Amino acid sequence: MRVVEVTAFGGPEVLSMARRPEPEAGQMPGKVRVRLKAAGITIADLRIRAGLYVDQMGELRPPFVLGTDFAGRLLDPAPGPGGTLPAGTRVAGFIPWYEELTGHGTYAEVIWADPEWFAPLPDDVDFTAAASVPLAALTARNGMEQLNLPPGATLLVTGASGVVGRFVVQLASAAGLRVIAVSYEGDESELKVLGAKECITRGEPLDVLRQVREHAPEGVDGIFDGALLGTVALAVLKDRGVFVSIAPDRVPAAEREIRVEFDRARPDATLLKEILEQVASRELITRVADVMPLEEAAEAHRRAESGHRPGRVVLMI
């Protein structure tokens, strides 16, 4: 089968097409095969490829296959949240790549997946959109639990134009929070429809924080740092506030009794089923920035890194 391998740590040019044996039924106890139709590219993929997490990867070194989010069809029957899912069922989910550290990701035609990693995909959600949802939405749900802010509190969401940030804006608004969103220029109207109270165009961090102070002179109660501003953002966070980051190396040191958290989503098939149903009913809105063939994974990484367009870049397989 075709896969895209990371051949060395570095820029997008280290991604290369390769062939590996296709998994056979029964080879991996407790796991089933999924033939993929789409795979999402995440910030974690970019940072792992660049070698930013090499010290946390144990003995795993190139060549390996990246990728967490996936959408496709089951090749084997599997237990699911509502009962047995027959072969051929459309599913979406994510591989906890960083916890597994096997080097087997979703930039591939067929993967092994634990049934807890995926959920059935409603007919109203296509494979492309589905591949943008699982990790981002579960990260957003987990982040909201970590923030644990009461209704009426003010939440600053950096990186609000991204898929994770958009989900946080929607969930926070539904929870009764006042959301200040930092976004790309042109996204303000859409984010306000999704629930943001105020929007600030992303730019130099100090200028962004000055504008945050104009909207919240006393500071904000919480920060969800999807744009990885890190320590500098603490300047607008109240004493005893809470800061949640989506990258382990961008979690600031605690100060002023501020609680700091790293948001790493955990697989949860039951919760993912609920989320995918919310996407199908348009209760939750996702965003796909680009769709590119698997063979163009290097260019897809370039676009994702450049912020070509906000949203998830998806590989079609």
Rank of each mutant, 00 (worst) to 15 (best):
G219W: 02
G219N: 12
G219M: 05
G219R: 06
V220M: 04
V220H: 04
V220E: 12
V220A: 05
V220Y: 05
D221T: 10
D221Q: 07
G222F: 04
G222L: 03
G222H: 05
G222D: 13
I223W: 02
F224H: 06
F224R: 03
F224V: 00
F224A: 10
F224Y: 13
F224I: 00
F224G: 10
D225T: 14
D225E: 08
D225C: 14
D225L: 06
G226D: 06
G226A: 07
G226W: 01
G226S: 09
G226F: 00
A227K: 10
A227N: 11
A227L: 08
A227Y: 07
A227E: 09
L228H: 12
L228A: 15
L228K: 09
L229N: 10
L229A: 12
L229M: 15
L229G: 12
L229H: 06
L229P: 13
L229V: 08
L229E: 14
L229Q: 12
G230Y: 02
G230R: 02
G230T: 13
G230Q: 09
T231N: 14
T231Q: 15
T231M: 07
T231L: 04
T231W: 01
T231A: 15
T231H: 15
V232T: 14
V232F: 04
V232R: 15
A233Y: 02
A233D: 08
A233E: 05
A233V: 09
L234Y: 11
L234E: 09
L234T: 13
A235S: 15
A235Q: 14
V236W: 02
V236C: 06
K238P: 09
K238F: 02
K238D: 13
K238M: 03
K238Q: 14
D239V: 14
D239L: 04
D239Y: 04
R240M: 04
R240G: 00
R240I: 01
R240Q: 11
R240C: 06
G241L: 00
G241P: 00
G241N: 05
G241V: 04
V242N: 05
V242P: 11
V242R: 13
V242I: 12
V242Y: 01
F243I: 04
F243T: 09
V244S: 08
S245E: 09
S245G: 09
S245K: 03
S245N: 07
I246F: 00
I246S: 07
I246T: 14
A247K: 14
A247P: 05
A247D: 07
A247S: 13
A247F: 04
A247C: 00
A247V: 05
A247L: 12
P248E: 10
